[in-house]
């Protein structure tokens, strides 16, 4: 199941674990990323709290946590080469995997059609 947030994140949900990244729209708006800072594995994150930081040449931006959960895995590849987020934001450019506190919380997020309406 693929879900989205109004803060331009996507979540791919499988067995109570959400793979989280930023949308193509967000990546395009941010421009070429030069730095990514990810949370630590094991960190307990809360919905709408800071989860990661991305920086372009121009500015730093926060990436918010879309749901409550524990960081199960991070994508070191985008720390080593932030340009992956620009080239494949909704694939190889994923940020982290979140073991959700309540898997059903995801139901309240936007579906793809609703997100597309939002950015239209």
């Amino acid at each position: 199941m693929l879900k989205f947030t109004a803060e331009h994140e996507w979540l791919k949900l499988e067995d109570g674990v959400a793979t989280v990244g930023i949308t193509s729209h967000a990546a395009e708006q941010l421009g070429d990323l030069v730095f990514v800072e990810l949370p630590e594995v094991g960190a307990e994150l809360t919905k709408d709290g800071n989860a990661a930081t991305v920086e372009s040449v121009k500015a730093a931006s926060d990436v918010y946590c879309p749901l409550d959960g524990e960081v199960a895995e991070i994508n070191q590849a985008i720390v080593d080469d932030p340009s992956i987020v620009n080239s494949d934001p909704q694939g190889a450019g994923w940020f982290f995997k979140l073991k959700l506190k309540n898997a059903s919380d995801a139901n309240a997020l936007l579906d793809e059609a609703a997100y597309k309406d939002l950015i239209a």
């Binding site: 421009g31 070429d32 030069v34 372009s56 040449v57 121009k58």
Partner: peptide
């Protein structure tokens, strides 16, 4: 203009 379609990195 803050940037053109090429983007800040490539322009630089």
């Amino acid at each position: 203009p803050v940037q053109y379609p090429a983007g800040v990195l490539k322009e630089h």
